[in-house]
Simulated scan of single mutants.
Amino acid sequence: CNAFSEIHGLTPCYTLNGSVLKDASDTISLDLCSCDFNADGYRLPTEAEWEYAARKTISGMQSGLTASGQVDKYGKEDTSIPEEEVSWSASNAHGSHKVGTAGSPFTEDAPPVAGSGNPNGMGLFDMSGNVCEFVWDWSGRYIESEPGERASGPEAGSERVSRGGSWSEYTPFIYAGDRYSYDPNECYNYLGFRFVRTVK
């Protein structure tokens, strides 16, 4: 995230003792770093930000017991829309796809174009399924925050939360409210991430 921020002339978010992190292999520093949420650079979303993006619709919030995007044109929950129309899951995929393709026809000889599928209520693609997405928060119980404060989970931990489920049979729970957690040093072909930015 920091490198991508610097490439685009933005202020990096992740620092340790005031120094911008530049070595992605220095896992101890990465685990101990802090995030400047006011910086305009790229970062991982908090768990609360991720869930808001997965559940927000034009008419409110969809249930956490449905795949992100299982809503009608009015933003109302619509479980008659098949999960396969909004997500790459164990039932319709055997690997990850370009982001923004869920719901578009897929054949090995004609892969879908990114952005060709069905978005969720906020216009975002593949919030459910495809790959489990790491977020900033360490895994733990939900922590209450005061109104106006940023909810960002425990200050330390051994596993970071990942959300959205994936195409893999090992992480099949793709509903907007489902949670997983992994050591951030683990690497599987069904784990990924999504960048966000704080825009003022």
Score class of each variant (00 low, 15 high):
residue 174 I to D: 04
residue 94 H to L: 06
residue 86 V to S: 09
residue 51 E to I: 08
residue 158 S to A: 11
residue 111 P to N: 08
residue 136 W to K: 00
residue 197 R to Q: 10
residue 29 S to H: 05
residue 161 V to R: 05
residue 80 S to K: 08
residue 152 S to E: 15
residue 143 I to M: 14
residue 155 E to K: 15
residue 6 E to M: 08
residue 158 S to E: 13
residue 146 E to K: 12
residue 87 S to Q: 01
residue 40 D to K: 11
residue 197 R to G: 03
residue 181 S to Q: 06
residue 120 N to Q: 11
residue 156 A to I: 14
residue 78 D to P: 05
residue 72 D to C: 05
residue 46 T to W: 00
residue 189 N to K: 00
residue 1 C to N: 11
residue 165 G to P: 03
residue 130 N to F: 03
residue 65 L to N: 15
residue 7 I to Q: 15
residue 41 G to T: 11
residue 130 N to H: 04
residue 100 G to E: 03
residue 94 H to C: 08
residue 124 L to M: 11
residue 131 V to W: 01
residue 112 P to Y: 10
residue 163 R to E: 11
residue 51 E to N: 07
residue 131 V to C: 08
residue 15 T to M: 00
residue 14 Y to E: 10
residue 198 T to C: 12
residue 20 V to H: 03
residue 139 S to K: 13
residue 67 A to H: 04
residue 46 T to G: 00
residue 86 V to M: 09
residue 133 E to H: 10
residue 159 E to P: 01
residue 4 F to T: 13
residue 107 T to W: 09
residue 114 A to N: 01
residue 115 G to V: 10
residue 44 L to K: 01
residue 104 S to V: 05
residue 8 H to M: 13
residue 98 K to L: 14
residue 147 P to Q: 06
residue 160 R to M: 05
residue 157 G to Y: 02
residue 128 S to Y: 06
residue 135 V to M: 04
residue 35 C to S: 09
residue 1 C to L: 10
residue 184 P to A: 07
residue 189 N to Q: 09
residue 179 R to C: 14
residue 180 Y to W: 01
residue 148 G to E: 02
residue 137 D to P: 00
residue 193 F to K: 00
residue 154 P to E: 09
residue 136 W to Y: 14
residue 83 E to F: 05
residue 62 Q to N: 03
residue 55 R to S: 04
residue 45 P to G: 01
residue 141 R to V: 15
residue 176 A to F: 01
residue 150 R to H: 06
residue 127 M to Q: 06
residue 183 D to H: 13
residue 174 I to W: 05
residue 105 P to W: 06
residue 148 G to L: 04
residue 11 T to E: 14
residue 126 D to F: 08
residue 158 S to C: 06
residue 103 G to V: 12
residue 14 Y to V: 12
residue 173 F to R: 08
residue 138 W to D: 13
residue 180 Y to P: 00
residue 142 Y to D: 13
residue 73 K to R: 10
residue 195 F to C: 14
residue 166 S to N: 03
residue 26 D to N: 15
residue 116 S to L: 13
residue 142 Y to L: 09
residue 126 D to N: 10
residue 43 R to W: 04
residue 179 R to M: 13
residue 20 V to A: 08
residue 169 E to V: 15
residue 151 A to E: 06
residue 184 P to V: 07
residue 183 D to L: 03
residue 5 S to G: 06
residue 159 E to R: 10
residue 19 S to H: 02
residue 22 K to L: 04
residue 198 T to P: 14
residue 95 G to Q: 13
residue 30 L to R: 07
residue 52 Y to K: 12
residue 63 S to C: 07
residue 20 V to L: 01
residue 102 A to R: 01
residue 57 T to K: 04
